[in-house]
């Protein structure tokens, strides 16, 4: 298995009255070569679960394994096997786009020539070549996502963990990135993508896991999970909580 999460649990400020279970005994197996979608509502625990998988957040309980390596026992080896696009983080934004990707490569101990070559290729693929010398702090939100994605890819990892990779990215770049990721998965790489855009996940991924309230509600191939319906309808059925907004907000009509 490329990734296996066993009983992964995160409790924030345990033992206090503000104690909150963000991820609750999550079990998930991701096979090699899978393009896995992780879907859930806002605050379902997707980012917390992925942070525990990628070594950014220590689990309260449970195990996260990447290709059989325990992320929290042998974290350096596990981190070398992963490329991560975290959500809600910013990297060193006074560096230029090229510098940032180079920095990420060199930090992983790669040699300079390889890093320079790959940085060029990646900036081209992300359509950032013209802005390679501009400080990242002057980038738009979508460009930031793309340069951080490039920084996650530079060491050619076997597993990509991407938290909301398409947020704020323009449709053309998104299509390019999607193609790039699908090619990567066809070549045997594993991709985990979190999103709450169901259409995207249904079109792009071959596997999907539905998370709500920190628990796993369903997991498997997209066709297994959605059966005859669209993924969006399945998701709404699983998660529930639809309100009949139209009736309650009857005053919301232009006068």
């Amino acid at each position: 298995m490329a990734v296996s999460l066993r009983g992964l649990t995160k409790v924030f400020s345990p033992g206090t009255e503000r104690s909150k279970v963000a991820v609750n005994r999550l079990n998930l197996e991701v096979p090699h070569g899978a393009f896995y979608g992780l879907v859930g509502r806002n605050g379902a625990g997707k980012t917390t679960a992925l942070s525990m998988l990628t070594g950014l957040l220590r689990p309260t309980e449970g195990v996260a394994m990447v290709s059989g390596i325990d992320v929290w026992a042998d974290s350096r080896r596990a981190k070398m096997a992963m490329g991560v696009l975290p959500d809600g983080m910013t990297f060193f934004e006074r560096l230029s786009g090229r510098q940032l990707v180079t920095y990420a490569g060199l930090l992983r101990g790669m040699d300079r020539a390889t890093v320079a070559q790959r940085t060029d290729d990646l900036l081209g693929a992300m359509d950032l070549s013209d802005d390679a010398g501009t400080p990242v702090q002057d980038y738009s939100a979508g460009m930031r996502k793309k340069v951080m994605l490039a920084a996650a890819l530079v060491h050619a990892p076997g597993l990509l963990v991407l938290d909301e990779p398409f947020e704020a990215v323009d449709p053309v770049s998104a299509a390019n990135i999607r193609e790039l990721l699908q090619g990567f998965a066809r070549a045997g790489g594993t991709v985990i993508v979190s999103s709450h855009v169901m259409d995207l996940v249904q079109r792009m991924c071959d596997h999907v896991a539905v998370v709500d309230n920190g628990r796993l509600l369903a997991a498997g191939t997209v066709d297994q999970v959605r059966r005859e319906k669209s993924l969006e309808d399945t998701f709404v059925d699983l998660v529930g909580g639809r309100t009949h907004v139209g009736e309650e907000l009857s005053w919301l009509r232009p006068r």
Binding site: T54, L56, P86, G88, T90
Partner: peptide, 13 residues
């Protein structure tokens, strides 16, 4: 570093 430190954590420096 603020959130930039995440890059050091992720790369396992």
């Amino acid at each position: 570093d603020h959130k930039g430190f995440a890059l050091h954590v992720l790369t396992g420096v």
